[in-house]
Design a protein around this nucleic acid. Sequence first.
DNA 1: TGTGACAAATAAGTCTGACTTTTTGTTCCC
DNA 2: GGGAACAAAAAGTCAGACTTATTTGTCACA
Lengths: 233, 233
Amino acid sequence: MTTPGRGLHGHVLDTLGPAITAGEYPPGSVLRTDELAQQFDVSRSVMREAVRVLESMHLVESRRRVGVTVRPKSEWNVYDPQVIRWRLAGADRPHQLRSLTVLRSAVEPVAAGLAAKNATAQQCAELTECALGMVANSRGHRLEQYLFHDVAFHRVILNASGNEMFARLGDVVAEVLTGRTHHEVMFEDPDPAAVTLHVKLAEAVREGDAARAEELTREITVGALQELDILAP
Amino acid sequence: MTTPGRGLHGHVLDTLGPAITAGEYPPGSVLRTDELAQQFDVSRSVMREAVRVLESMHLVESRRRVGVTVRPKSEWNVYDPQVIRWRLAGADRPHQLRSLTVLRSAVEPVAAGLAAKNATAQQCAELTECALGMVANSRGHRLEQYLFHDVAFHRVILNASGNEMFARLGDVVAEVLTGRTHHEVMFEDPDPAAVTLHVKLAEAVREGDAARAEELTREITVGALQELDILAP
DNA sequence: TGTGACAAATAAGTCTGACTTTTTGTTCCC
DNA sequence: GGGAACAAAAAGTCAGACTTATTTGTCACA
């Protein structure tokens, strides 16, 4: 998604970040900058920059004479895309996936309602195109192409809502949908009912029917939640 | 809220962050690390750490031979509490406040519904206590005390939902509520209807009535949205 | 005229070592 | 036992030298 490992400090983050978010260092653990620098075979300046980034994510806290202490999970910036990616790649992936899907179920219906009111003609066209793409790839194990249009569809909805907080959840939704297709058991073709819902949703948005758009999206997200319950009850 | 200006690099951030989020440097602007270091009268290492943090917030991008370029608003990590605070302190505060209130209106009802199912006895007690505190301070210009209980109330709801993504929005809600009381025109006592809604909500959660909790919260957030429309139509 | 390779300039990236500051824990004295 | 002085530890800061990637410009050649 984003460029990984840009520079030495990026490489350090790619290792330390996942380790911390995976709970490899329990909260309260104390790390020393110099020690870490040796372990990763980088200079102190590089390690300091990495620590600063982890600190800005509220994963750790750096204090004089003490060291770099790992913060409890409840204080992490769990909306940071980087943190989300690290956690999705780790052990509590199922738990994380559920949290995010619940978030989707709260946000997307409201976003769809707003999109019905605010979407431009251009966005309506894109939406219909995405829905068409989903239909066209809904059978015959064309999961990859289906996913592509599914992600694009939800991105357009979130953007069309006109709310920047919603729009920025596009990446999160993309991660969740991609994760579902790639990592979870999903050999079968997508649920035809879900495909229909997307087509109808594109329609509702185009017609400016906010209430219907909201309700349809609610059905879509309920489906996503049920899917999780089936896979990991 | 969080400790401001910890160390030199923190001080730099406290100046640069607000400046960038306020649009003082339009997207695409190029900054030079050395130049900034001189301006702020700090060493290059300190400035580099600051830039790294801004980079992790996706406010800027650092590239060799080019410099530190400011990214477009659409790429910022708008869920970063620090970024939220900077923007709330800046010029587009009204716009930001609206975005966040819309987010609340999407998330809180669902969170309340979950809270009704998952809240512990302890949390139910806290909720009732907060509601009582709101009632007790709803008249006689005791805005500060009222705010305190209001913030605590919503935090408990979000925590009790059992969803960590919701729980982490507690700070955001606190900022919005605090901002409303302190910065917006709010000389009058809070709307009695809103107070009643909170009392009823505490009741619904205690009784485990998810549907009612959700509906009551929807009414609360609708009220918050209307309030914004009245203040800045 | 266009194009490709090569060279120069530039700004970030990295490393090192010396020094400062804050915090904590200990010890010693009243 | 409590408080003040002291010592140690780790992060914080700085300055300077060096490396590397990227861009831009130039020049020769087709």
